Simulated assay, not measured.
Amino acid sequence: MPSKTEWMRSDAFRALKYHSPAAKLDWRAIAELHKFDPAVIDDPEGTVPITTWLDVFEHVAQELGSDAIMFDIFNKMDVGAFSVFDYLFICAPTLRDACKAWKRFMPMRTNAYGLHYHEDEHYGILEWPILEGRGIWCQSMYARIGWAARRFEIVLETDHPPIAIELATPAPKDQSDFLERYGRKVRFNRLRNCISIPAYLLSKRLPQNEDNLYAIIQTSAFRELGLFQNRNSPMSRVANEIAETLKNGTCNLAQIAQNLGMSQRSVQRVLEQEGTTFRKLTEDIRKTAAERYLQSTDLPFKEIAFLLGFSELSTFSRAVKTWYGVPPRKIRESGTRRIN
């Protein structure tokens, strides 16, 4: 299902490569194994396919012998590891502006997904979408959360910021300084990947903000955004919209086209260029989402069936058995730690 044109910035590999304990690994061998040019690690404008990006995070965690280590590695990274994207947050006028800046400038980091930000009565919510069908993404998500939490720690000037973290993954088996420090503020087996910020903090003036400096940072950010924004992936927009729309219990071509502001024929042409169809893509997304829901949540089967757009539990059960050769109960009982 992954699009041939979906990419992520490879500077995350550079940040990982030069940070202990990952610095001790043979990164040339890692590049050869995962079929990317090692020179891209130190290229400030380098990108790699999203599947490669996700696979490398999983590989490094395995090599380091801990399924929780990414929280700690990325939580300890200094500001500047990701260039202007860091400073858009750290130097913003308020926390609300900081979150909105990350959402606005996310296309400079990847064309595979967008970062969402919205507010309700009680919280501002920064949400990373679940990337159905791109491969195993646990470790990369742990890295993002560790890194993002550190930015909140810096601007709020505390190692224990009053934020809440939700992850659509099982809890890791291994210990982590980050998880020990955050304790019950991190909740696993949820339906989303997000950080929630209490509403009373959203208008807080950030200590490192200075208007003239921030104007310079934004100018630099727009320049960098221009370098990457034309490397878009229409396929990603379609796939991500299908994954989100399925959660409402129904999904069809007409609805997806309308949500994207495209004609149905335009959506079909995008999928044809990637060698797939709307029906096939929807089926792939349902399949990987079904495994994730069954293995990383305790949701009742009926609710999972609804979230995947099945009107009847029996139809969902037959689909799972067709995909995996066993009924939903067996998938849940297997306890496999794959998150697709």
Rank of each mutant, 00 (worst) to 15 (best):
P300K: 08
D42Q: 06
R337K: 11
I163V: 08
V56S: 00
A31W: 07
Y200G: 01
E45R: 05
Y87T: 07
P129T: 02
R337H: 06
S266V: 12
T51W: 05
D55M: 01
F57A: 00
K204V: 07
G309Y: 00
T322C: 07
Q264S: 13
F316S: 02
M262E: 08
E153P: 06
P2S: 05
V84Y: 00
A15P: 05
E180K: 15
N259Q: 14
E274C: 09
A148L: 06
K24T: 10
I41Q: 00
R337Q: 08
T288F: 10
T219R: 15
A168S: 09
K100T: 07
S317I: 10
N230L: 15
N259C: 08
R338A: 09
E224S: 05
R134H: 10
A289R: 10
M141Y: 04
F316Q: 03
Y200I: 08
A29T: 06
D120R: 02
D67W: 02
R329G: 13
Q258W: 09
S140A: 14
T322W: 08
M70D: 01
G275W: 09
G124H: 00
K330F: 13
S83N: 14
K321V: 11
V326W: 06
Y200H: 13
V186L: 02
R332V: 07
V56N: 02
L126A: 06
M108C: 01
I50Q: 01
G114E: 04
N248R: 13
L227M: 14
S311D: 11
R96V: 06
S203R: 14
H160V: 10
N259T: 14
P234S: 05
E291W: 15
F36C: 05
S20I: 06
